[in-house]
C-alpha cells in the first residue's frame, strides 16, 4: 500500500521559495517523470520529498506523513534518492558504497545483495575494492543507482541520471534502469533533461515551469503533444 501523494503548498530553502502548489502522485510500482527547464524546481521536488527542504503542505507515503521527517527516516521508510551528480562516496570502495546503501537492512542480506550487484555489473565487480572516485562518470551513476536499490526501496527518486554522460551510455543506463525497476516492482520518480528517453520509460509525466506544474498526463500523450515536442524534444 505504498503510494506517494505530494501536496506541496510551498517549499524552498531558507527564505527563498522555489515551489508553489505542486501536486503529484506516484502509484505503487508506477513511474512518473518530471520535465522542465533548468531552475524550474525539478530537483527541489525530489529534495522536498526526501526532507532536505523547508516545506509546508503534505507528503503522504502510504499511511505515513513525511513532512517534518529527517532525510534518514524518509530513506528508512523505503524511498531511495539518487541525488544529482555526486551520489557516490568517493573515498569508500565500490563494495562499501553498496553496503552503505544497505545500511538500513540486515548485515547478512546486505552483504549477499552487494555480491549480487557486483556480479550483475562486471564493470563494478572488477573494481569492487577500489575507491569509487576512480570510476568513470557512467560507472559512478550506475553505482549510485545500485547503491540506492541496495535498500530494497519501494520508490526510487532519480535526479538527472544522464547528466554528464555520453549519449550511448545514457541509453544503456536507461535500459538497465527500466529492467531493474520492472524486476523489483520499484516505483520511480524521475527528473530528467533528456525528455525523449525519460518519456520512453515513464508512464505518467508532468511539466514544471517556474515552480508550478503546467502540463500533466500519460507519458505517451505528452510525447505526441506539439508544445511539448517543440519545447522539450527539440523537434
Amino acid at each position: 500500500m505504498s503510494r506517494l501523494a505530494v501536496e506541496i503548498s510551498e517549499a524552498g530553502y531558507g527564505p527563498v521559495t522555489v515551489l508553489r502548489d505542486v501536486e503529484l502522485e506516484v502509484p505503487e510500482g508506477g513511474r512518473l517523470v518530471i520535465l522542465g527547464a533548468n531552475g524550474a524546481g525539478k530537483t527541489s521536488i525530489l529534495r522536498t520529498i526526501s526532507g532536505l527542504c523547508r516545506v509546508s503542505g503534505s507528503i503522504r507515503w502510504g499511511d505515513a506523513e513525511l513532512v517534518g521527517a529527517p532525510p534518514y527516516r524518509v530513506a528508512a521508510a523505503g524511498i531511495a534518492h539518487v541525488p544529482q551528480g555526486r551520489g557516490t562516496f568517493g573515498d569508500l570502495t565500490v563494495r562499501e558504497n553498496l553496503l552503505v546503501g544497505g545500511a538500513t537492512r540486515q548485515r547478512r542480506t546486505a552483504l549477499a545483495d552487494a555480491d549480487r550487484w557486483l556480479e550483475r555489473f562486471p564493470r563494478l565487480g572488477e573494481r569492487a575494492s577500489r575507491a569509487a572516485s576512480g570510476l568513470s562518470g557512467g560507472e559512478q551513476q550506475l553505482l549510485a543507482i545500485a547503491r540506492a536499490l541496495m535498500s530494497a526501496p519501494r520508490l526510487l527518486l532519480l535526479d538527472e541520471p544522464s547528466l554528464g554522460l555520453a549519449p550511448k551510455i545514457t541509453v544503456e543506463l536507461f535500459a538497465t534502469l527500466d529492467e531493474l525497476c520492472a524486476e523489483t516492482g520499484t516505483a520511480m520518480l524521475l527528473v530528467e533533461q533528456n525528455a525523449e528517453l525519460a518519456l520512453g520509460i515513464a508512464e505518467q509525466a508532468v511539466i514544471l515551469e517556474s515552480g508550478r506544474i503546467t502540463i500533466r498526463g500519460p507519458a505517451a500523450e505528452l510525447r505526441d503533444n506539439d508544445d511539448v515536442r517543440r519545447a522539450y524534444l527539440g523537434v
Binding site: 526526501s50 532536505l52 529527517p70 532525510p71 534518514y72 530513506a75 528508512a76 531511495a80 534518492h81 541525488p83 555526486r86 551520489g87 557516490t88 562516496f89 552503505v100 546503501g101 545500511a103 538500513t104 547503491r147 540506492a148 535498500s151
Partner: peptide, 9 residues
C-alpha cells in the same frame, strides 16, 4: 547528504 539519503542519521 548521500549518507543521510541512504538512511544514515
Amino acid at each position: 547528504e548521500s549518507a543521510e539519503l541512504s538512511g544514515i542519521s
